[in-house]
Every structure is written in C-alpha cells, then in structure tokens.
Design a protein around this nucleic acid. Structure first.
Lengths: 140, 140
DNA sequence: TGCGATTATATCGCGCACGATTTATTTATT
DNA sequence: AATAAATAAATCGTGCGCGATATAATCGCA
C-alpha cells in the first residue's frame, strides 16, 4: 500500500466521526440528548428492556462508560433501571413514555443527516460496507 | 434512501472510529502518546512550528481542546510553545528532539494498522474518498 | 455442600471534545 | 490618537471512553 495515503486512514475516520457528531449536536440538543445517548436509545427502541451487557456488546462500550450514561438518561427521565429477578448481577434498562416518545423525531433526524452527508444512496451503502468490513477485521 | 440502513451511518462511523482508536492504543501506549496527540505530532512532522490555530484548523478541534493537549505534550517533553514575535496572540508549537525522534516509529504503526484493517488497497482508497467527501459536505 | 473461578455491573482517575466565557493583542474606524 | 471591533488562546464545566479496580452474584466441580 502507498504510504502517505495509508498513514491517514486514522485521521479520516476520526475527522468524519467528529463531523457527524457536530451534525447531530444541534438536533439532539433540542431533545436534551447527547450523541451516544441517542445511539443507546436507538438500541432500546429496537428492543426494550435490554441488559447493560447487551447494550455494551452492541455499541462496543465498556460498562464504565455505559453505567453513568444510562444513569444520566434515568435522571432525565428517559429510561428506568431494574435488576434481573433471576440473575441479580444483571441490570435491565426500560424506556419510559418520554423515552419512547422521542422515536417520533427519528425520521426527521435521519432525513437531516442523510441530506447533509452529500452522498448518493449507492455511495452511502458502499461507505457502510467498507466501515463494517474494517471494523470486523480490526476486532479480529 | 432506505430507512433502516440510512439511520445507522452515524453508528458505523462512530464504531469504526472507536475500533481504530483501540487498534492504535497499545502501539501508542509504548510511546507514551494518546491518539489525538499522535495526530497532532503528524501535523508537526509535516511542518514544524505551526500556531495553535493552524493545528486547530487541520484537525478540526477547538482551542479549548488543543491547548491542554499541547500542554500535556509539552509536559512530556515532545514539544515547546513560543509566542509569535510579530503577533503575540499567536502561540507556535515546536518539536523537540524527542518529538522528532518518534517519527521513526511511524512506518511500523502504519504497517500494523494497514494490516489490521483487512482492506485491499482499492478499498482503502475508496473508503478515504467517501469519508472525505462526506466530511466536506457536512462542513458545507 | 463448599469454595474458588467467572460474570455483571459499578467506581475512579485521566484525557479528550465541546460551548460559553475571558483575557490579551491586533486591526479598523473615526 | 482614541476607541470599537475582531482575532487568538486560554479557562471552565459537562459528558464521553477507557483501563484498573472493586463488589456482588452466580456457576462449576469435587
């Protein structure tokens, strides 16, 4: 592989992530959410009542990151936490009505972001494919 | 654009960035560097003595992020800071011998990362192109 | 049954990353 | 020349993200 190009993939991914984060920020501010909190909510919309460990596995975050994040969302009234009856080591996270309600904003956000990326549908799919392939390879 | 696919570009970029960061971490730990510090060093290897504002523009970070980062690198002896003689609002950052020396590890890191991504050269270039296009569009 | 190993979550300290604000300096206007 | 506006860094408070560590519950196996 050519050297200078190669060198910079770290920067491209890094900068792209910051850019996407900045794109979401003003939209999420209105909802009182942060970017990782929004990701966690998406996971819960798909399937409510997941344990911390499940969310951790999907987002690829440690419990040391997720526990405080979920507690902040509990403090703002979006979710509740409850110990598993069978295995009390586990903590399940449940959406409140307020947490479920935010899903109605989802399409609007999606639309804003899709527009701002400036990518065609094909490019979009291609980018996702490459990112996923790379991520899988790294997690070897 | 299709909805569920669309929705998740934020997550793909986010997760890919975390994955790349984790990939670099053990390599950078040996050098006593963090990931953003390494990016800042790369900028300085290319051209030494840049002002905070220049680095800020290239990496897309605020002075509130860069000032402490550079100060930590000064504390570990990799760079020095000096006010501009002509315009004393500016602060220039200069590599020390120790900071320059680390560049000798660059190829090794590059090689490790390139291998771990599991992408062909063509895919690599394609991914960079898409990420850059997206970033430019977002920064509209 | 007992007890060491494993598992799930939580806690702590550090380093980003940001917006809002502050300070110091330079430039523009009158 | 006086002062207003703009600019460059720095400071402050909040929320990730991590490794190391702690705590508690469960499991495995003799």
């Amino acid at each position: 592989m050519s050297d200078p190009l190669n060198e910079m993939i770290c920067f491209d991914v890094y900068a792209a992530n910051l850019a996407v984060g900045r794109l979401y920020k003003p939209l999420l501010d209105e909802l009182g959410l942060t970017y990782p909190q929004y990701l966690a909510l998406m996971i819960l919309w798909e399937k409510d009542g997941r344990a911390i460990g499940e969310i951790s596995g999907i987002l690829g975050l440690e419990s040391s990151t997720l526990t405080p994040l979920i507690k902040r969302m509990e403090a703002t009234g979006l979710v509740t936490r409850r110990r598993d009856d069978k295995d009390e080591r586990r903590v399940h996270v449940f959406l409140t009505d307020a947490g479920r309600k935010i899903e109605t904003e989802r399409l609007r956000l999606t639309q804003c972001v899709a527009d701002a990326t400036g990518l065609s549908f094909d490019e979009f799919v291609q980018l996702q494919g490459l990112l996923r392939k790379m991520r899988k390879a790294i997690q070897k």
